[in-house]
Nucleic acid binder design. Structure first.
Lengths: 338, 338
DNA sequence: TTCAAAAATACAATCGATTGTATTTTTATT
DNA sequence: AATAAAAATACAATCGATTGTATTTTTGAA
C-alpha cells in the first residue's frame, strides 16, 4: 500500500529546489528569497501539502504541546479550568491534549505514559481520588520535566501547585452556617488522601472550634461525594440527633442530599441549612438554590498554564517549588438564608 | 543543551545488541529469544527507557490515535458521547485526542489541521453551529480519510453520519404537548444551517399539522439556544397571545426561559408547559423538573467510534455513505404534567 | 570589470524507531 | 561429524522534516 501524502520532497522534486530550502520556505525563514518562497507556497497549496508534525517534532525535539489530565471533563469546574488553559496555550502557540483519568490511578498512570511517549513539553494534572502514590509522576519531575499540580495538590516532595484556599473557604462556609444559627453542623467529607479534602475538613473544624461548638466524629461523613453518596449521607444525618446544618465538600453530594431530604419532608433551610462547594451551574437553579463556594476556575487554568509555560521556556524554574494560592468566595443562596 | 532521554540505541550500546533487536524485543517479536528479551527488558527498566511514539508513528505511518472534535466538552451530552468513544477506543487500543471547537468554524478548521498534521488515523466530529461550508472536511474525506459525523450530520456529500432521530423525537414531544391540551405551542429553534435543528423544527411542524393546529411563523423563535437566548425567547412568547406550551430544541434555553417566566409569576406547567431536548442532568433537578428528550449519548459514542475503527481497518468502507440513526425517548416530567 | 561580502541555495547528517534482507548461530537430522 | 533447516541476530535503509555547513549566485563598492 503506497502512501500518497505529500511531503517536502515532492515539492522539492516538482520544483527542482532542494528540500532544505523548501523546509525553510515553509517555515518562512529569511534564508529563502521571496521569489522562491512564492513558488514553494503555490506548489504546496497545489499539491495539498500538509506538514507532518510527527517528523517535525521528532527532529526538533519540541512538540509545542502540553498535556492536561483531569478526573472528568464533564465536571464544570474542570472544563472551566481547561478553558483557561486553552486560552493561555493558544496565545503561547501551544496545543493542548486533554485527558480524563475518571478518578482511576491506573488510567492516570497510562495517560502519563502516553503523554510522555508523545513527548509533550509539560503536564498539568489534577490527580485522581485514588492517587496516594506519586511515583509515576515524581520520576519525571525529577528529570526536570515540567509538571504542575492544580486544584488537588501534591506536597510529598518539591512540586509546583496551583490551588485555592480550601481551608479559608471552608472556614467561612462553616462560620456562615454558625452565624446563621446552626448549632449541629455536619460535614460531608471527601477522600482524605486528597489534601484538598483534608483542608476542607480542617476549615470546618476550625470554625466549630472558634465558636466553641461541640464536635463529634459522627458529624463527619466521608464518602466519594458522588450523587449516590449524597443520599447515603443524608440518611446518615437523619439518624443523628438535631443536625441543623451541613457543609458539604462538594455541590454534587449536597444537591442529591437536598433532593432526598425534601422528599422526606425536611425543610431546607429551615430544618437543615446547606452550603456546598464548587458552584456547579446546577446549584444556582435548584430549589432551594444552593449556597456554595465559587472557585476561580478559569483563572486557575490561566495561572497554572502560565507557570507551566514559564517552566518550559526556562528550565531552571522547573526545580523551584512554588505554590500559588487563589482565593475562592462564598456565595450565599437560599439553602442557607436566614 | 544535550537531550538525555534514553533511546533504543542506548540500550543497544549498553548490551552490545543491535538496536533492531532491541526494537523487536520491546515489541515482543518472536524473532528475539527469551534470554535476550529478558536482558533488554531489564536494561530498559534500569535506564528508564520510554518509547518515543513520535519516531514510531513516523516510521510506521500509523498513530493508533483518533481525533474527536465537539463544540464543548462541558456539555453533558458531549462528554457522555466522549465516554462512549473512549471506551471503544480503549478496547481497540487507540488513543483519543479530544478537542473543542467552542462553536467556532475557525477554531474547528485549525483543529482539523492540527489533527491531520499529527496524522491521527481518523476523526469523529460534531460540527460547530457556525459551520455552513464543509470544504475543510471534505478535502480530506475525498482522500479516503476516515471521517465520521455524529449528532450534527453533514449531508452535503457522501458521508457517514451517526445521528438520532430528531424528527421523530420532536414530533413526539410536540404531540405530547398537544395531547396534554396545549393549543398554542411555540418552538425555540436553533441555527437552521444545522440539519439537526431543521429536523427538530420539522417534527414540531408535522405534529401541529397532524392535529390540525393552526400555525404562525411568529411561534418559532430562532436563536443560538444559549442561556441568554432562553430569556430573550421567553420575553418573546409573553408578547404573543395565549402561548400555552413550548417545545425547545434544547434544555439550556428551556431552563433559563422557565426561570425567567417563574419570576414573572407565570405558572409552569399550568400557564405554559415546557418540553426541552437533551436531558441535561440539570433538567431532572430544577423546579419544575423539565420534560425532555433523552438521547442515547454513550451509545452514540460507541457506535460512531466502532464505525470509525471499521473504516480505519478496512479502507473500502470509508467511501461508503451510511447513516446510523439512534432512537431517543421522551421523558415526561413536571414541566408538562397534566 | 573585478572581487569581496552578502544572499540564496544545495548537501548531508540527524531525530528514534521500524523492518526487509543478510548473516551468523543454534538445532536437529542423517 | 556433516549439513540442511530453523532460529537469532546484525546490517542498512527508511519515515519526513530540520539544520549546520558548504557551495553557488547575486549584489555592490572600488
Amino acid at each position: 500500500m503506497k502512501n500518497n501524502t505529500v511531503t517536502i520532497h515532492d515539492i522539492s522534486k516538482a520544483l527542482g529546489i532542494d528540500s532544505s530550502t523548501v523546509s525553510r520556505a515553509l517555515n518562512n525563514s529569511d534564508r529563502v528569497s521571496k521569489k522562491t518562497k512564492e513558488k514553494i507556497f503555490n506548489k504546496a497549496a497545489e499539491l495539498g501539502y500538509q506538514r507532518n508534525s510527527l517528523a517535525s517534532k521528532l527532529r526538533t525535539n519540541r512538540t509545542n504541546t502540553i498535556g492536561v489530565i483531569v478526573p472528568r471533563i464533564s465536571r464544570h469546574f474542570f472544563s472551566s479550568v481547561i478553558a483557561g488553559i486553552e486560552e493561555t496555550a493558544y496565545k503561547a502557540g501551544f496545543d493542548v491534549i486533554i485527558c480524563q483519568s475518571l478518578e482511576s490511578v491506573d488510567r492516570e498512570k497510562k495517560l502519563v505514559e502516553t503523554l510522555l511517549s508523545n513527548r509533550v513539553d509539560g503536564i498539568l494534572i489534577s490527580i485522581s481520588m485514588e492517587t496516594t502514590n506519586y511515583e509515576h509522576l515524581n520520576n519525571y519531575k525529577k528529570n526536570g520535566y515540567p509538571l504542575i499540580f492544580f486544584d488537588r495538590p501534591c506536597n510529598v516532595s518539591e512540586n509546583t501547585n496551583v490551588i485555592i484556599d480550601d481551608f479559608k473557604a471552608s472556614f467561612e462556609a462553616t462560620e456562615h452556617l454558625i452565624k446563621r444559627g446552626c448549632k449541629h453542623i455536619a460535614h460531608f467529607s471527601g477522600p482524605q488522601n486528597l489534601e484538598l479534602y483534608q483542608n476542607r475538613k480542617s476549615g470546618y473544624l476550625k470554625a466549630l472550634q472558634k465558636y466553641d461548638i461541640p464536635f463529634s466524629e459522627t458529624l463527619v461523613i466521608e464518602t466519594q461525594l458522588m450523587q449516590q453518596d449524597g443520599i447515603t449521607a443524608a440518611k446518615e444525618i437523619l439518624k443523628l440527633p438535631k443536625v441543623d446544618g451541613v457543609f458539604s465538600a462538594n455541590d454534587t453530594a449536597a444537591i442529591s442530599a437536598i433532593q432526598y431530604l425534601k422528599n422526606q419532608d425536611v425543610k431546607i433551610p429551615e430544618d437543615i441549612a446547606f452550603v456546598g462547594f464548587s458552584n456547579e451551574p446546577i446549584s444556582a437553579v435548584i430549589e432551594p438554590s444552593l449556597s456554595t463556594i465559587n472557585q476561580p476556575d478559569f483563572e486557575m487554568g490561566k495561572v497554572a498554564s502560565s507557570l507551566l509555560f514559564e517552566q518550559i521556556k526556562n528550565k531552571k524554574y522547573a526545580s523551584e517549588n512554588q505554590t500559588k494560592i487563589l482565593t475562592p468566595s462564598l456565595i450565599i443562596r437560599n439553602s442557607s438564608k436566614f
